[in-house]
Design a protein around this nucleic acid. Structure first.
Lengths: 231, 231
DNA sequence: TTTCGCAAGTGTAAAATTTACACTAAGTTT
DNA sequence: AAACTTAGTGTAAATTTTACACTTGCGAAA
């Protein structure tokens, strides 16, 4: 916790999606309820402090809870139902660290997508544990966090449908199959290999290197690299 | 003003676009600065109260300031730079009705698009005047309201590019020319008449009636009507 | 009553994009 | 040597997008 005044009415929550070349996951935290044995799962999030911007708050909170930094967090909307924090078990936990747990909290939701291998979350602050959860098996989360997560996923897919994002999630050298698997994972459906390749290559965002995969148990694929970003 | 406790940290701002079959306008309010003669222009907006949802707050605030109700307001993002309310003249005015004008306020921004003829804004609450301002000639607004407005316009155009919205802004009977003018107004560019008609008619959202325009000084156009909404 | 101005209304060809679809190639493992 | 696995490749059909110019019917003006 910081020493600055927290703003008791506004929080940020971060939906950090992670891709491991295989599955789509989301960063969750586990926190102990005050009295009981029970634990609570939630998205990383906390109240903002008075002199920081929302974007700044999102980055700080994510860092304080999970140790992750340098992630581009994109705001996608605010949630503010007066009863979004209403569940008994939620309140029970809230009481343990907030002075006025009844007050309604507006939360501003942020979203990011990262390569899992680049980040090793480590729990701190009030988080007992931080971990990557497979998106297909999302458990019940605290407050309205399931809703916040669901809308983040919708937004993420929207960003992918025009086929121009996501390359930054791949290793430095990658195959076209890797990109396709990424798209199939995010969009949740299969894509035609030939059509996909045509489309990706037409975008001119990647170029072939003169290297190939090694040590794979099939025909080795040509490795591609990302072209220099245009600012 | 309501008698309930206002939340001193969170406000809503409403960007209400109005279309008058000709131009795109935005609803602005004018408020007096405390001491001086000067006036301040702004988007309708105010602090939320403690037991209302954000959507509810947006509708309430818009109603209290302008008398408008029954408008579908869509949230599009939150703004929360700590110094978004920093201008001297802004503060000067703020002091006149807020107990703690220094405090940072997060604002949640809402957007709507309406037929101007359906709504007659009337100033109340702290607004001296409420009026429709042509979007092409937007003046300097209070706080970061120019930015909030600009982003709303971007979002509005995004919603129009797939050609499937906006019909609700037209009169009950309308011509294809009306729709085209609407699209040209929102998108801010000219469209090919034949191609536009093809596209609109293919969507099957409108059907021709057996009536035509009267009293126009050119060939009268067939009037169309909106098909029954599908839920 | 003729002429003029104005927006309505209409079709086609070329280009670009999207979609569906099946076999061979080059490695590793057995 | 056979089996397995993913890489890699081309084409035809369908659909969508784009560019483009003249005639029609009304009211207003001459």
């Amino acid at each position: 916790m910081t020493t600055k005044n927290v703003n008791p009415n506004v929080s940020v929550d971060c939906v950090v999606f992670g891709f491991d070349n295989e599955r789509l996951k989301v960063l969750l935290i586990e926190q102990k309820l005050s009295d009981k044995e029970k634990v609570q799962l939630a998205l990383p999030g906390d109240l903002i402090v008075d002199d920081e911007g929302l974007d700044e708050a999102a980055n700080r909170v994510l860092f304080e809870i999970s140790g992750l930094s340098g992630i581009f967090l994109q705001q996608y909307r605010a949630f503010g139902d007066p009863d979004r924090v209403s569940d008994i078990k939620d309140l029970d936990w809230l009481k343990s660290y907030r002075s006025n747990p009844q007050a309604r909290v507006i939360t501003v939701a942020y979203m990011a997508l990262v390569k899992m291998e680049d980040f090793s979350p480590e729990a701190s602050s009030f988080a007992e544990r931080v971990f990557w959860q497979d998106i297909e098996e999302t458990p019940q989360l605290a407050f309205d966090h399931n809703k916040i997560l669901f809308e983040a996923l919708e937004r993420l897919r929207d960003d992918f449908v025009n086929y121009k994002t996501g390359f930054e999630l791949l290793p430095e050298k990658f195959t076209l199959g890797h990109i396709q698997r990424l798209y199939e994972t995010i969009l949740g459906k299969d894509l035609d290999k030939r059509n996909f390749r045509k489309k990706i290559l037409k975008e001119k965002l990647v170029s072939p290197t003169n290297q190939k995969q090694t040590g794979v148990l099939h025909k080795p694929a040509v490795l591609y690299k990302l072209n220099h970003e245009k600012v």
